[in-house]
């Protein structure tokens, strides 16, 4: 007599997944994300290659034209206006008659003046500069911005403790 092979009986049944712990986890995550939710009137996107210095200032950013300077480039909003080499603005972008004047930046700011008259009237500039950039380079940007009608320069920093 041949022996029949034992086939285990698999019962088709449903089971209830315990999702309580998962709900707990999501609740904690939700609270954390709600706390970090950007509540300021203006959100500033971090610029690639720019490590902002930290400060204990408690003022939230305002809406203004953004100038950023990293170790490789100088940008106005998202437009690249000049190259940065060895932490200084490339000589090709500097006016030969004025060593502090960054001509392409001035031109872009003038264009901004015409296109966004209302915002330009405030004369405000949000300045996102890498923490290692020397003051000599920053001075050129600030000088050019004030020449273009933007003397109200606001340094963007990260909140102390971030």
């Amino acid at each position: 007599m041949r022996r029949t092979r034992y086939v285990p009986e698999i019962k088709k049944q449903s089971f209830g997944l315990n999702i309580t712990s998962m709900t707990d986890m999501f609740t904690i995550l939700l609270v954390f994300l709600l706390q970090n939710f950007a509540a300021g009137e203006v959100a500033i996107d971090p610029v690639a290659g720019v490590r902002l210095p930290s400060s204990n200032s408690e003022k939230n950013p305002v809406n203004a034209v953004k100038i950023s300077i990293s170790s490789t480039e100088l940008k106005m909003d998202l437009i690249k206006v000049a190259d940065v080499q060895n932490n200084s603005i490339s000589a090709a972008s500097i006016d030969p008659n004025d060593s502090n004047f960054v001509k392409p930046l001035f031109d872009e700011l003038q264009k901004f003046n015409k296109e966004h008259e209302k915002l330009a009237k405030t004369g405000k500039v949000l300045f996102l500069a890498d923490q290692a950039i020397p003051y000599g380079t920053l001075r050129k940007v600030m000088y050019t911005a004030s020449m273009a009608g933007f003397p109200n320069i606001k340094f963007v920093t990260t909140a102390a403790g971030n």
């Binding site: 939700l30 939710f37 971090p46 200032s57 003022k59 963007v156 920093t157 971030n162």
Partner: peptide, 21 residues
């Protein structure tokens, strides 16, 4: 929650920026 978490993840600012004024 599963729907809300990705929305908040996208819109959250993890690095808080301030201005000196």
């Amino acid at each position: 929650m599963v729907k809300l978490v990705p929305v908040l993840l996208v819109s959250s600012a993890f690095v808080q920026m301030m201005i000196i004024e």
